[in-house]
Amino acid sequence: MSDVTNTKRVIPDRLGTKASRILASWEVLLFAVAVAIFVFNALASPYFLDVWNLSDATFNFTEKAMIAFAMALLVIAGEIDLSVAAIIALASTAMGGAAQMGIGTAGLVAIGLGVGLACGAVNGLLVSGLKLPSIVVTIGTMSLFRGISYIVLGDQAYGKYPESFAFFGQGYVVWAFSFEFVLFAALAIVFAILLHATNFGRQIFVIGNNEFAARFSGIPVERVKFILFLLTGLMSGVAAVCLTSRLGSTRPSIAQGWELEVVTMVVLGGISILGGAGTIGGVVIAAFVMGLVTFGLGLLNVPGIVMSIFVGLLLIITIAVPIIGRRIREMR
């Protein structure tokens, strides 16, 4: 009873080494998968390793990834936006209509981004103003936004875009680096900083982990969520500019089904669908994985429907794996 001593305890900042923490992360696993797919593609097709082919392949994911970055923040905060593809349709339709009226490239870009922002504001007001669940709100606005597109366009298409407008989707900045790819890389950095290095990013994580505690800590929960919906709308507008420019035309069915691919990219990137955890780095890697797979399947002449089956499976598996993993660990 007298052998007990009261030593001063020191709490270390972190457990384990930096290397051990990084190695145990989902991102590393995902990166290994990306490398494996890359090698597989290279072996499967002699055309794959061509620089221009690879550059082309990036178009499979750059536009979706731009939205995925903003969506990642939204999902971490415990919300979701399923209207992103419909926002692209509406923004593209608005740009198409404006182009018919002879508005120039700068005006078109402003309209595309403006429509994106406006749509984001609608979602944001409904969710944080009226406190409605975002999944319901954005399923509604998904039909609404694309519906407007269909009413305006019917089975028509807008096609006459100014020549300089083509740069966003078809131009190259240097060598094989397209404008889209450079924009994607820049946005990746901006979003990574926003989420991981700013007070705002920290607030997003806290809201996703415990909204009560966020409120009790003085975080303006509603305002943060509204900003995130605005941001997602804006990024959908950016994607609309790039996609419309790349295709050179607008149909109301543009970007049909992209919301699922964007959500898949986010979840595959290790963002918890329940909110509260994830990294932009993970989403970047997930974008490459999905782009490589799409491209590889294209090289192998696999039909498009198989591609959507693949995306569906990927979504289910990536949501299920961590949950099953946790159960197994609990059972031990």
């Binding site: 900042d13 920290r202 994580f205 982990n209 415990n210 505690a213 966020a214």
Partner: peptide, 17 residues
């Protein structure tokens, strides 16, 4: 319920406000 984001690190909870 009101005080902590349980999955987040100690230091991030402490510094929040």
């Amino acid at each position: 319920r009101h005080g902590l984001a349980l999955p987040m690190p100690i230091f991030q909870n402490m510094s929040l406000p």
